Amino acid sequence: MFVWEGVSEFVAVAETESFTVAAKRLGISTAQVSRQVSALENRLSAKLLYRTTRRVSVTEAGQTYYQHCRQVLNGLEEAERTITQLQQSPRGSLRLTAPVTYGEKTIAPLVNDFILQYPELDVQLKLSNQTLDLVAEGFDLAVRLGKLKDSSLMARRLSSRTQYVCASPRYLSTYGVPHSLSELDQHNCLQGNLDYWRFQEQGRARNVRVKGNLRCDSGWGLLDAAVKGIGIVQLPDYYVRPALESGQLIALLAPFQEADEGIWAVYPHNRHLSPKVRMLLDHFSAALG
Rank of each mutant, 00 (worst) to 15 (best):
T30C: 06
T30L: 02
A31Y: 05
Q32N: 13
Q32M: 10
V33S: 00
V33H: 00
V33Q: 00
R35S: 08
S38E: 10
S38M: 05
A39C: 02
A39H: 09
A39Y: 04
L40S: 02
L40M: 06
L40E: 00
E41V: 05
E41A: 02
N42P: 01
N42R: 14
L44Y: 11
L44G: 10
L44N: 09
S45A: 13
A46H: 02
A46V: 01
A46I: 00
K47L: 10
K47D: 05
L49R: 07
L49Y: 08
Y50K: 03
Y50C: 02
Y50I: 07
Y50G: 00
R51S: 04
R51H: 07
R51C: 02
T53G: 08
T53N: 12
T53S: 13
R54H: 07
R55V: 05
V56D: 03
S57F: 01
V58R: 11
E60Q: 15
T64I: 14
T64K: 15
Y65K: 11
Y66E: 00
Y66D: 00
Q67T: 12
Q67I: 08
C69P: 01
R70I: 13
R70F: 09
Q71F: 04
Q71M: 08
V72K: 03
L73R: 04
L73T: 06
L73N: 03
N74P: 04
G75A: 02
E78P: 09
E78N: 14
E80C: 08
E80L: 15
T82S: 14
I83K: 14
I83G: 06
T84F: 09
Q85V: 01
Q85D: 15
Q85A: 14
L86Q: 15
L86V: 03
Q87I: 01
S89F: 10
S89C: 06
P90S: 10
P90I: 11
R91A: 12
G92M: 06
G92E: 05
L94I: 06
R95D: 02
L96M: 10
T97H: 04
T97P: 13
P99Q: 03
V100E: 03
V100C: 01
T101M: 07
Y102A: 01
G103V: 06
G103E: 04
K105G: 00
I107M: 08
P109G: 06
P109Y: 03
L110M: 14
D113C: 01
F114S: 07
L116W: 08
L116T: 14
L116E: 15
Q117A: 15
Q117K: 15
Q117G: 04
Y118P: 02
Y118W: 13
P119W: 05
P119H: 07
E120A: 14
E120T: 11
L121G: 07
D122A: 09
V123M: 11
V123S: 04
Q124S: 14
L125N: 06
L125H: 04
K126F: 12
L127C: 11
L127V: 12
N129Q: 06
N129I: 10
N129M: 08
T131V: 12
T131G: 09
T131F: 13
L132Q: 05
D133K: 07
D133Y: 05
L134C: 07
L134A: 09
V135Q: 15
G138V: 03
G138H: 09
F139R: 11
F139M: 10
F139I: 07
F139N: 07
D140T: 08
V143T: 10
V143P: 09
R144D: 11
G146N: 09
G146R: 11
G146Q: 09
G146P: 13
L148T: 08
K149M: 03
K149T: 09
K149D: 14
